[in-house]
Amino acid sequence: MDYTLLFAAVAALEVISAVLIFTFRNVLHSVLALSLTFLFNSILFLALQQTLLSLIQLFIMVGGVSTYIFVGVANSGLSRFRHTSLLALGIMAPILIVAYATNLMFVGQGTVTQENQVSGLMIKSALASNIGVLYVIAFALFATGISSIVLLKSLGKGR
């Protein structure tokens, strides 16, 4: 399979989102651009058949970027961010598209069949075959972080 078109698209999107980090004037939007950069980087790791690295990249995204969001939001004040509710919806839509596409493209890729020393059976390592599910889990965690910010914002409006 020729990955040139995939590489070109992902690389262009990654460069654009990296530039957007310091182009946005809003800290929350910059952090979201950084998360997009992490996402495209993990797809590049998948193209290099490094499934474990791509998963580590995803979970760094979830853990590290959520920390950035909470530090940034807690210090900048919740009420200054507009359109955050739309962002939460806009993040949930690409999740399913990316998960479905990666499942189509990379399922079975890099899957290693190993012989179990006890039973003698040939067992597929399950990491690569479930990659789409893991993308959904990681993004669901990330979207939960965003949604909690939206909830905090709506709670803070009443005061």
Binding site: I21, F22, V27, S30, L34, T37, Y68, G72
Partner: peptide
């Protein structure tokens, strides 16, 4: 901004 500089450092790391 200090936070934006930290995010840019992250880009260098990746």
């Amino acid at each position: 901004h200090f936070l934006i500089m930290m995010l840019s450092v992250e880009v260098g790391i990746i």
